[in-house]
Nucleic acid binder design. Structure first.
Lengths: 250, 250
DNA sequence: CAAGGTTTTGCGGTAATGTGCATGAAATTG
DNA sequence: CAATTTCATGCACATTACCGCAAAACCTTG
């Protein structure tokens, strides 16, 4: 096998994406190279900003939620069910504001053109999926966040203030009756909040495993959500009833 | 059997598809040619974007998921050659402004992360391609134009904002010595012009068939272009010499 | 068949890259 | 504080890549 820097570093990245840590000693033995070589590989990855170096090896720079490209939830039956239900729920809306993330991407891929339908989104992935089906898209600009794959930052926040949409559909990193809807990235959470503020109606999509989870930053308080679509059963989401939101079981 | 570049390269591709790696030394012995010949074969495959070259040989390109829409253009040898040349030309730049279109998408697919490199683009396709490789992206928002797949409508914002980039790389619908660089959509042409105005250097990519063609709207006058990269020969682009731009033949 | 041009190939010299080792500095641990 | 481990740096060696050139093979054309 070709044991060159490029291929080694590729394998190291794959391990990080898999949730493993990089331990220089072990890797040196495994790849049959000296410690220095592994260290140089790690240094190279660090300079590209792909890993964070620690004593003895390296760890992933973005521990929570692996990057978009390694995930594909369209085959996840729970997600598919939530998406199917959400598609019924947004029928007839003329302006949609779609969040990023795998769930929303799965939804965008199943959207079909309707007269007068415009989709706004901060996610280039969603935009591409919509354009494939001939749906009109307006993109919100900004810095593309590596974790969630949506555009964040001042530009994105500003852009949302001048618009108004019928329905905003949010994905979640976690949602909890007490803590609300939360995200792993500060800027992403700020954007999610901004999205709710320009929408007449806000729908959150959360497959079962997201219920009760609290991600790092609170984005939206539960009382500001109008609707929650989930595949979880009623007992799991009983805590949300007090806020008067509509709860739909897919 | 014929031992010519075409058949050799075909066999190399077959091996990659089979999951093997290309080791120049072994291949040279096996095909009974010199190392340089194998290396030239591999370089040719790299130009077409079919392999990733590493020290000692080549490995398969990372993701086997190219959307159909641009498969064609990335396999077009003329486009691949122009893109390869352009990649060399933008080396060292810290801020790139990449246009949309199939040529620029092919270029984005082959971009690799560098410390401090930021890509700005109005194209969600380009943004997605960059994020796949871990390149930092700033997206320009706007209405997604159906024809070119780039966000338009932010031309004014781009021109008046405090953005400055080292190099802007433009694709073309047509380029003509008298008429300049032109596009089929008015908003796209306005955006292209704005892109030149915030860049220290503007490079246009035009494969042979675009030379001498005039699209509907003029975007950039020829004297505002700093560099033209094309696979056409010198006689085809002789008309551009009077403007003092650098002309690179891929 | 001969002449001319293009493509392909191999070779030489030079530059660049990857690797391991030795040394000393720095950090961690008990 | 001492012992151990890890890190950083410089250096030498081997391998590979790159570039230009010339010979050979091939194709085209008259």
């Amino acid at each position: 096998m070709l044991n060159v820097p490029q291929t080694r570093q590729q394998k190291l990245m794959a391990r990080l994406a898999n949730g493993d840590e990089l331990i220089a000693q072990e890797l040196a033995v495994e790849f049959e190279v000296s410690l220095d070589t592994i260290r140089r590989d790690i240094i190279a990855l660090e300079q590209r900003g792909e890993v964070q170096r620690v004593r003895g090896g390296a760890v992933s720079v973005a521990p929570p939620s692996p990057p978009m490209q390694y995930r594909n939830s369209s085959q996840n039956p729970a997600v598919a069910a939530v998406v199917s239900r959400a598609l019924r729920e947004i029928e007839g809306a003329s302006t949609l504001l779609l969040d990023g993330g795998t769930t929303l991407l799965a939804m965008a891929e199943r959207l079909r053109p309707q007269p007068g339908l415009l989709v706004m989104t901060p996610s280039p992935w969603v935009a591409v999926a919509c354009q494939k089906h001939g749906i009109e898209v307006f993109m919100l600009g900004g810095k593309l966040s590596p974790s969630g794959g949506i555009n964040v930052g001042d530009a994105a926040l500003l852009a949302t203030t001048d618009v108004h949409v019928d329905i905003a559909v949010l994905g979640v990193c976690g949602i909890d009756p007490a803590f609300g809807l939360s995200a792993d990235d500060l800027h992403e959470s700020q954007l999610k909040l901004a999205m709710t503020q320009v929408a007449a109606r806000t729908i959150a999509l959360a497959s079962r495993e997201k219920i009760g989870r609290r991600a790092r930053y609170r984005a939206v308080a539960p009382e500001h959500l109008d609707c929650l679509i989930t595949d979880a059963d009623a007992t799991a989401v009983a805590g949300f009833n007090q806020y008067g939101m509509e709860i739909i079981h897919a």
